[in-house]
Simulated scan of single mutants.
Amino acid sequence: MTPDGKPTQRYNDYRDHSRSQIVLGDALRDAYGDIFLIKEHPAAADRSSITGKFKSFCGEWSVGTAAGTPGETFPVHPS
């Protein structure tokens, strides 16, 4: 939502089914780009760094909730 409560252009673009996958991919890269600064192809051993990134964004209170879940479910390559 924009500050005045209207849908963003990205949301409108996402609703176009011919572009939704590209728009979603761009949004994920924008939202989680810092994860790939930790390591381009994260492995299971990098999980604590990934979870730490979410904790730094969401706050310490979110361990096991908002920060813990994405940190634990972010795709990693087997070590």
Rank of each mutant, 00 (worst) to 15 (best):
L28S: 06
K55M: 13
H17F: 12
I22G: 04
S62I: 01
S56Q: 13
A43H: 12
Y32Q: 02
D30N: 11
T8R: 11
Y11R: 09
I35T: 09
N12A: 14
Y14K: 09
T69I: 14
L28W: 10
F54C: 02
R47G: 01
E72V: 02
L37N: 13
G68T: 09
Q9T: 14
A43Q: 13
V63D: 04
D34W: 08
F54E: 00
W61K: 12
Y14T: 01
R29Q: 06
D13V: 06
T51D: 04
V63S: 04
I35R: 05
W61I: 07
I22L: 11
Q9K: 15
K53Q: 12
G68Q: 03
V76G: 01
R29W: 03
G64R: 09
P78K: 11
Y11E: 04
P3Y: 09
I35W: 04
T73S: 08
F74D: 00
F74H: 05
C58Y: 13
R19P: 00
I22Q: 15
S62C: 14
L37C: 06
G64A: 05
P75R: 06
Y14W: 13
R47Y: 02
F57M: 03
S48K: 15
S49K: 15
D16K: 14
S20I: 00
K53C: 07
P42F: 05
L24S: 07
F57D: 01
I35E: 00
V63H: 06
P75E: 00
R15K: 14
P42L: 01
R19M: 06
D34Y: 11
G5C: 08
S18W: 03
V63W: 03
P7A: 08
G64P: 03
H77G: 05
E60P: 07
Y32I: 01
F54W: 04
Y14G: 00
N12K: 15
I38V: 08
A44F: 12
A67P: 02
S48L: 09
Q9W: 07
R10H: 09
L28P: 03
L37V: 10
P75C: 07
T2G: 04
I22D: 09
I35F: 08
S79M: 07
A31G: 05
R47P: 01
K53L: 15
T73D: 00
L37Y: 09
F54Y: 09
H77C: 10
